[in-house]
Design a protein around this nucleic acid. Structure first.
Lengths: 251, 251
DNA sequence: CGACAATTCAGTCAAAATCAATCATAAAAA
DNA sequence: TTTTTATGATTGATTTTGACTGAATTGTCG
């Protein structure tokens, strides 16, 4: 394995956590302790990480102890653009369901201070509205999926059956001609209920989600009213969305 | 585990509360008392916490987005004592309902790492179990009461009707010969449901709660099985509890 | 209030782990 | 081929760790 390859890999590993163990790295990269140290020194010189005894920590990780979503650090500007665009589609007084995920969190941040009814199954998203005096927030109950801080399972779905919303703003794992997909059966279960009870379904998906398929099928494209993304689509996906009467907005 | 890993973890633990027990830390981090002390000294030098006898407390005036309980900074060590005592009454495998409040949060901190079913309507308390691999946490749904981070209202109560628990651990606003009381109608509504579905009702109340009455009546003393507090009671309250067959534990 | 027991604290020490530097060899580049 | 660079092993130095000690603090009991 080349030096560059290894160092890219080390940078990727930081997406899964703030600390990396040196001994662990040797095993995963199948290389010696000396080489790992040299790589870490190089990455430290680039300002990407800070070396500490036993490994290294991400420089950005200071002061932010826990991050629910391992993907929340990817493409933050793109997500913020999407968030702002989607927030512009919401009208005051509406009832909006927000599911979990970092892109939806960007939407939520741009909805702060608006007068809305918010329904969500995500604790991080509920927290965004903590000091918002205008929005009324209702959490679905359910089993706490700790890694993402979302509530799932029968209690969640049962609660969703009893509400009706003007709009659903939803993140996904992937989108293909077969429809939407996501990574977890329980998450998909609650998202299906959300779709059922919402008059309008908006999917937020950065460009990396197109053409990718996640583990569990979630819904066909016909269920979706609007997709908001950060890059223009190629002709194939444009036609696919048109065929299913799905609008597309470029943020 | 590496030094940095431990210290990051300690910082995380402070997000869930204001006091940390040294002995607890040793167990949770699986390390010696010497090492924990050295970590605490290091974190104190960084100004992140203040060491006190038996552990450490969070330094005041950190930029905390939300202080879920205006009383959470009062008597942190007394509350921690109560928390430890109550945690000792819980057996592994049990289903425990925890309501909101800073004293109950102290109990929750002492339950970390235990193998339990937790049901709660408080987001700060659910967060305490984020990185606990053993406990399964279920949140009631409901309307988010932002100042305290608790979930209330019909959705919450309806969800509670569908569960059964071995034990309820509950904070209160006041306790007098008329029974328990609390400060908010919605909170009282959900707490009544919690009492209904729990086999055993434990009330945690520091000494300031005795003889004080809050706005809304919650339940008569007969509903309570055990009161845990931080100071011995005077004869009047002792007799009062005895008359209603309520046990008392001094933490 | 004061004596006693039980914790908790601070400092020391040896063992273990990790680090930095060096060197010989292997791989890549010239 | 020669030169340069990257790698892995080895070395002693440094840091970290857990156990142990006596001192200080806290809680209990009379």
């Amino acid at each position: 394995m080349r030096a560059i390859e290894r160092q890219l890999k080390i940078q990727q590993l930081f997406n899964a956590g703030v600390f990396i163990d040196a001994e662990n790295l040797c095993r995963r990269l199948r290389t010696s302790e000396s080489t790992v140290r040299r790589d870490l020194i190089a990455l430290e010189k680039q300002g990407f990480l800070r070396r500490v005894h036993g490994g290294a920590i991400a420089v950005e990780a200071r002061e932010e102890p826990l991050d629910f979503d391992w993907s929340s650090r990817r493409n933050p500007e793109e997500k913020e653009r999407i968030g702002k665009a989607v927030a512009g589609l919401v009208e005051d007084g509406q009832t909006v369901i927000l599911d979990g995920g970092s892109t939806v969190a960007a939407v939520a941040r741009n909805l702060q201070g608006r007068s809305l009814q918010i329904i969500t199954n995500s604790i991080p998203i509920a927290e965004i509205f903590y000091d918002s005096k205008c929005a009324e927030v209702t959490l679905t109950g359910g089993f706490l999926y700790p890694r993402l801080g979302v509530l799932l399972g029968p209690f969640c779905e049962q609660m969703l059956e009893q509400v009706a919303a003007d709009m659903l703003i939803m993140g996904i794992g992937g989108i293909t001609e077969n429809g939407l997909s996501n990574s977890n059966t329980l998450i998909v279960g609650s998202e299906r209920k959300m779709i059922e009870v919402s008059r309008k379904v908006i999917v937020v998906a950065d460009h990396s989600k197109f053409g990718r398929s996640a583990m569990v099928h979630l819904a066909p494209l016909d269920k979706v009213d609007l997709v908001v993304s950060d890059q223009a689509l190629n002709t194939r996906f444009q036609q696919l969305l048109e065929r299913h009467h799905v609008d597309f907005v470029l943020a």
